[in-house]
């Protein structure tokens, strides 16, 4: 799918910033496609040891899609918010698709390097997190947004504060409490408390 012209996206973005919610509907699939492609590229990079910066990725997409001369900082903030939401979708879908994969192994004596498959690292389960986050939104939408922006979008406290139009201190507190809530929620699901 060819990259849509920057002009179109910029217009949609401005329209949405101005309050046109239909513009968001049109905007989303366009951005999604680009974001998805960029994410795949990033994730399959052959350069180990480099931390992947989500914001860098979103910036890249932003620069590609938006004529940023025409757009003010508020629009930009909105764009990032959209991207964060889309990233959440992309990554959760990705995680969901991998859930079904089973571990193989023929039980033969494993040589040394294979034996290094010891217990998996406790990385957050994106699918469970996504679901818990949806539930959190039911209790306190702003906190859910903070998590979405910070964790899925990779935005800083400051940027998040700008998007949500609150103080940085508020973002800090929301982030803290949201994490506690999510952890409690997720540990309730698993009997071993992980």
């Amino acid at each position: 799918m060819p990259t849509p012209p920057a002009k179109e996206i910029t217009q949609l973005l401005r329209a949405w910033s101005g309050g046109d919610s239909q513009a968001l509907e049109k905007l989303t699939p366009l951005v999604y496609a680009e974001l998805h492609r960029a994410a795949e590229r990033y994730m399959s990079r052959e350069r180990p040891g480099h931390m992947l910066q989500t914001t860098a990725l979103i910036h890249e997409v932003y620069m590609r899609l938006v004529d940023f001369g025409q757009v003010d900082w508020q629009d930009r903030a909105h764009f990032f918010a959209v991207c964060a939401r889309l990233m959440r979708r992309i990554l959760t879908d990705f995680a969901r698709s991998r859930r079904t994969r089973k571990r193989g192994g023929d039980g033969r004596q494993l040589s040394l390097d294979e034996k290094l498959y010891v217990s998996p690292e406790p990385a957050p389960d994106l699918v469970a997190l996504d679901e818990a986050l949806t539930r959190l939104a039911g209790v306190d939408e702003r906190k859910s947004q903070v998590v979405e922006l910070r964790f899925f979008g990779g935005l800083t406290e400051e940027e998040t504060a700008g998007v949500l139009k609150v103080s940085q201190e508020t973002v800090k507190r929301d982030w803290k409490l949201a994490k506690l809530w999510l952890l409690r929620e997720l540990s309730a699901e698993q009997p071993d408390g992980r």
Partner: peptide, 20 residues
Amino acid sequence: AERYLEAPAMEVAAKKLAEE
């Protein structure tokens, strides 16, 4: 909670992808 979610989601996903 301190370290929870401090690594952005992309990284988590990317590592998984890299493994597989």
